[in-house]
């Protein structure tokens, strides 16, 4: 089982925001309009930590004539409930569909705020959450404690077995891809040409790889690159109005990561040294680069050693 263990190094106890002392925890919501009837709620470009309550992933709100559609649900029940209120006030219509792009807790653990039968995900994502969800839940409670209050592990009730869904004439194309995880959902809002890439897309923020298959990720990015779309909502980082920059940055980072880790093993670096490798200048625009590189070293290095270092026992 793969369990995301995020945390901070420190001789310091994790800091508690002033607002958390004597007041109920509350997530700030500032949906920004990115296209006609589409808003993005930006996550913070940080690791999951108490200061941000785990709200690090971008969330998309789409107004359709039939009701409100959400893409991803945030890290906790508290977040999911607040998101529902904010989205329904914004659009004036009830939430009728919530898509979960992939298994990771910063996207999926708020889904308990919604009726199961309106929460849709790829069958592979539902299986992933079933398998890894408890470990993720444990890790999230350890890191975020009261932010997580009341959050139980919940599964999406609606497996996606179609390549599109229409809501009152607004057609959403559903693309079953993979690479960031074993099942990654990307969505194209055909009315505005807005691509919602989930964590297949990282924009000015280094990609996270705890469940990644880099070769499949590159194939999925090639599919998105061939798509005729306008702007793109990445899983993390600012909205990409060009629709291309996030694709290129994610592709460049994972391409560099793949070859740099192979080179590091071949040239005899240990894991600490590999985590301290210089990050090439063009990739320095990616926030949290050192942090994600060191996480990636942990994810990939032992297997690469097993593949690249020859047997020397006698």
């Amino acid at each position: 089982m793969i369990v995301s263990r995020r945390g901070v190094l420190g001789g310091i106890a994790a800091t508690i925001p002033a607002a958390a002392i004597g007041a109920a925890l509350a997530y700030p919501f500032a949906p920004v309009a990115i296209a006609d009837g589409v808003w993005m709620v930006a996550g913070s470009d940080e690791p999951i930590q108490r200061g941000n309550g785990g709200a690090i992933a971008n969330i998309t709100i789409i107004a359709t004539p039939a009701g409100t559609v959400l893409v991803d649900s945030g890290p906790s029940l508290r977040y999911g409930e607040a998101l529902k209120t904010v989205a329904e006030q914004l659009t004036g219509r009830k939430v009728i569909r919530v898509y979960i792009t992939h298994l990771h807790p910063d996207h999926a653990m708020g889904l308990g705020a919604f009726p199961r039968e309106i929460v849709a995900a790829l069958p592979g994502t539902i299986a992933d959450i079933e398998h890894n969800g408890q470990g993720f839940s444990d890790a999230m409670y350890r890191l975020l404690d009261d932010w997580m209050r009341g959050t139980d592990l919940a599964l999406p009730g609606l497996p996606i077995r179609t390549d599109h869904e229409a809501f009152g004439g607004r057609n959403l194309r559903l693309m079953a891809l993979s690479g960031h995880s074993s099942a990654d959902l990307a969505i194209l809002d055909e009315q505005t040409g807005t691509l919602i890439g989930g964590d297949l897309l990282f924009h000015r923020r280094a990609p996270a790889t705890p469940t990644a298959d880099l070769a499949r990720w590159r194939e999925s990015l090639a599919v998105l690159d061939r798509l005729a779309h306008k702007g793109a909502v990445p899983g993390h980082g600012p909205f990409d109005s060009s629709g291309r920059e996030a694709i290129a940055q994610t592709r460049d980072w994972i391409g560099w990561l793949d070859s740099a880790l192979n080179d590091a093993v071949r040239s005899g670096l240990d894991m600490v040294e590999a985590g301290e490798m210089p990050i090439p200048a063009p990739l320095a625009v990616m926030a949290a680069g050192r942090y994600e590189l060191q996480r990636s070293v942990s994810h990939f290095y032992p297997a690469l050693e097993g593949k690249l270092l020859p047997r020397i026992d006698q």
């Binding site: 995020r6 901070v8 705890p210 894991m271 600490v272 040294e273 942090y291 060191q294 994810h299």
Partner: peptide, 16 residues
């Protein structure tokens, strides 16, 4: 004493 800034995997934490 060099270590990563995060213990991503508590079963396998590199130290130099």
């Amino acid at each position: 004493l060099s270590m990563p800034q995060i213990a991503e995997d508590q079963h396998r934490f590199p130290v130099a």
